[in-house]
Design a protein around this nucleic acid. Sequence first.
DNA 1: TAGATTGTTAATCGATTAACAATC
DNA 2: TAGATTGTTAATCGATTAACAATC
Lengths: 218, 218
Amino acid sequence: MNTRICETLPEPVVRRLTKYLSYTARMTEEGVEWVSSADIGDALGLTGSTVRQDLAHISAGGVTHRGYNVERLHKMLRELLGADRGWCVVIVGAGNLGCALAQHGDFDRYSFKICGIFDNDPAVIGKKVGDLKVAPMSELGEAVRVNGVEMGILAVPCEAAQEVTDELVAAGIHGILNLAYAHVRVPEGVALVNARILERLQELACLLNAAEQVEGRA
Amino acid sequence: MNTRICETLPEPVVRRLTKYLSYTARMTEEGVEWVSSADIGDALGLTGSTVRQDLAHISAGGVTHRGYNVERLHKMLRELLGADRGWCVVIVGAGNLGCALAQHGDFDRYSFKICGIFDNDPAVIGKKVGDLKVAPMSELGEAVRVNGVEMGILAVPCEAAQEVTDELVAAGIHGILNLAYAHVRVPEGVALVNARILERLQELACLLNAAEQVEGRA
DNA sequence: TAGATTGTTAATCGATTAACAATC
DNA sequence: TAGATTGTTAATCGATTAACAATC
């Protein structure tokens, strides 16, 4: 029923829901019981109106005069965003970034379990990364099948991005998080989300370029 | 003149410009001389119309019947997105992620020079990270002043995110790339761009939840 | 109760797409 | 030349914001 909703949720809404999740996590820790749409908006730089519409999308069940129950809202968001069901994830690319993510505690905390890291460079195969050992790409398919892996994180150089994507798809993965500095294509039925740090840094550079120009004129 | 433009560029346009930059980089390598808006759109999953409007924003100077000159376009995008001027960047947080980014070759290639990595944990201060050594937070201000640092990358646990942001601002930084799993506030005049991997992974989880539901019904 | 806050509808705003004259 | 491709204008689409009746 929840997921029925997610299916038709516009992307901007999904993005904000992830922010509501971390907000409600913090409020839960702080022991806050109720928050209003205005509280959430203030904390995250949104209007209360936007927050209410987003939460109406998922039938969050706000209460007139009190707002939203933090615990209940947090639970709904966890369910919707898969933070409570234990996802099995593989990382492809055992470079600096891939290895760092494999050891990053936050994933585990939000129920994304890194259950394998792969590379095709003989120099790194067999290397220990936290509790894992870098495995050769040839073992990807079996690992996915045996562990029921649904997601793959792509952390390879851009030249290899499309090829490795195809291998992930062939291995039976359902969704890919692309960290590589390249646009990759996936077939119908495979989900793709991009998260490229360099691109965001370039965005920042563009903003600063602009800001400097304004100063220059002032 | 270029930057005059950037100042008023809508965010979705800036995001796509970063994609055009990596596309033109690849085409340059491949020795392609001209590309049409349709070529670019096909490669990146956009309509030619969107591409033409974006490029008109920056007066890319397309040529009727031939399209855009790859070399010229690439140069314009490099300028606009700051890939040709040598930015000095500091990283705050010498955990797995911060250290991985400090050693990530792609930044250097696109002229973001990591010129310092900071942390306040005595256990990591002094640790070698590539060519750098982890410095204590107390040295941040001086490093920013001496090196003319404009950007900071925030790679700390979410509890520390706001505090460290304030320290970066106090140190005189102009723009922040936030990798921490928390919403941070910056004062007027400081640019902020978010790049949170965990959030994107949650987005992917939401998509997969939805896809499974569809399958379940089919 | 009165005041506060929701959910929802309508209005606004902005982004994307379509269409096409200009033109090399 | 004819066909291809731009830049730009107009049309569509979607997302955000404002407004307000319902209500605890």
